[in-house]
């Protein structure tokens, strides 16, 4: 039984289509990275999964239950870290957790939970004085209450420093080892590639790629991105660079002096040689190995490759 099944989900707000015929499944026990730029529809999807908003058409099942009619049962077995949410200013971390524990009928210890998210020293301070990162840690602790079967973390790294983000990933790993399914949304590839088994990339309300992390890595191949700063450029030279056998894609970034970026599979000297042969002065160049970030970029920017 999949942990989450999204089936032909469409959500429109008047004329605006937030999600269009979105379908995907999250398997039980996996850590699923839900990736997309801001505004792609990640939060909308999560809001439907949690029954905060209602679909225009299509349906969502969570833990084998209909997300709309059985939302309470679903949420009893789910831990949620919502996005863009303020905690209750006048309540302490302890009171927040007591409320969550009380609400779920769990018997967790607030101190142990705050210890895990490294917020124990602020346990009796009111959340009104917390930094964004501290609020995020508190909400993560609330999500962990009752050892949920499913964790839904919406942009969990928001407001966290690199150290906090690393700790958060560590907790995701621990929860996954415990057997929980983790559904993890982010707009930064780096944060999901380290912990996720599978990644789905959402763009403009549609899933443009869904694969394992290694599968996505393979799809980039061994390509290298070459950035060349030149004194001038013309269309003929760009065409010549593009037509080189080792170059899969070349783009003029513009700017002054102009910068060319090219995806190169083999020798990069061919590109530099071609430019110099045309009397164009190469002022600077750099190479970068392709990363998952590039995959993400290519799927989520207008000039990107088409979905497979």
């Amino acid at each position: 039984m999949p942990a989450i099944t999204v089936d032909s989900l469409t959500k429109s707000y008047g004329q605006t289509l937030a999600l269009e015929d979105l379908s995907f499944t999250v398997e039980e026990g996996e850590v699923f990275g839900f990736l997309g730029p801001n505004g792609a529809g990640k939060s909308t999807t999560i809001n439907v999964i949690l029954d905060f908003i209602r679909p225009t058409s299509g349906r969502v099942e969570v833990l084998g239950l209909d997300a709309q009619t059985h939302s309470r049962e679903i949420r009893a077995q789910t831990g949620v870290l919502p996005e863009g949410v303020e905690t209750y200013d006048r309540l302490t971390a302890r009171q927040h957790l007591e409320f969550a524990i009380d609400s779920k009928g769990a018997d967790d210890d607030p101190e142990a939970l705050l210890e895990r998210v490294d917020l124990l020293d602020a346990i009796d301070k009111k959340a009104g004085g917390y930094s964004k990162g501290m609020e995020q840690r508190l909400m993560l602790a609330m999500a962990l209450v009752g050892e949920p079967e499913l964790l839904i973390l919406d942009e969990p790294s928001t407001g966290l420093d690199p150290n906090g983000a690393r700790e958060m990933r560590e907790i995701v790993r621990e929860e996954s080892e415990r057997g929980a399914t983790v559904f993890f949304s982010s707009h930064i590839m780096e944060q999901v590639e380290a912990v996720c088994n599978r990644v789905g990339i959402l763009r403009d309300g549609e899933m443009v790629a869904i694969d394992t992390v290694s599968g996505l890595r393979d799809s980039v191949g061994n390509g290298t991105t070459l950035r060349v700063t030149v004194d001038r450029i013309d269309d003929a030279a760009m065409e010549a660079v593009r037509s080189l056998p080792d170059v899969t894609e070349a783009r003029l970034e513009g700017g002054d002096p102009p910068v060319i970026t090219a995806q190169v599979d083999g020798s990069k000297t061919a590109v530099l040689g071609e430019l110099e042969d045309r009397g164009i002065e190469v002022r600077d160049f750099s190479t970068r190995e392709a990363s998952l970030e590039d995959v993400f970029q290519s799927y989520t920017t207008e000039t990107g490759v088409e979905a497979r």
Binding site: L50, D51, S71, R72, R75, V80, P82, T87, F99, M142
Partner: peptide
């Protein structure tokens, strides 16, 4: 969303 992430209607 904090309230309704918990099992409350």
């Amino acid at each position: 969303k904090i309230l309704l992430s918990l099992p409350h209607s």
